Computed example of a mutant assay.
Amino acid sequence: MSRFVQQSEIADPFVLEVIDRPEPHAAPGQVRVRVRAAGLNPVDWKIASHPEVAAHFGVTAPAGFGNDYAGEIDEVGAGVEGFAVGDRVFGGARGRAIAEHVVVTIGSDTLAHTPAGVSDEVAGSLTIAARTADAALRVAAVAEGDTVLVGGAAGGVGVIVVQLAVAKGATVIATASEGNHDFLRGLGAIPTTYGDGLAERLRSLAPSGVDAAIDLHGVEAVHAALESGVDPRRIATIAAGPHPPGGAVPTGGQDAAPDALDRIAQAIADGALALPIQATFPIERVSEAVELQRGGHVRGKIVVTVP
Score class of each variant (00 low, 15 high):
A224S: 04
E200A: 15
P207G: 02
P207N: 02
H243W: 00
L261V: 07
D255L: 14
D211Y: 01
D215A: 09
V222N: 08
A213L: 10
H217M: 13
P250M: 09
G241E: 02
D255S: 12
D259M: 05
T237M: 04
A236K: 09
Q254V: 15
L198P: 11
D215E: 15
V249D: 08
I238C: 07
D215K: 04
S228C: 11
A240M: 02
S204L: 12
A221G: 14
R203N: 14
R233K: 14
D259Y: 09
L198V: 13
A257E: 13
L205V: 09
L205Q: 11
A260R: 09
R203G: 15
P244M: 00
A224Q: 09
E200P: 03
L226F: 04
A206M: 05
A256N: 07
E227H: 03
A257T: 14
V249K: 03
R201S: 12
A257F: 02
G253P: 10
V210C: 00
I238R: 01
P244E: 00
R203Q: 15
I214A: 01
V222P: 01
E200V: 13
P250R: 06
A199F: 02
G218Y: 02
D211W: 01
A224R: 07
A236S: 13
L216E: 04
T251M: 06
I238F: 04
P245M: 05
A213Q: 11
S228V: 10
P244N: 02
E220C: 04
V219G: 00
P250A: 09
A236M: 10
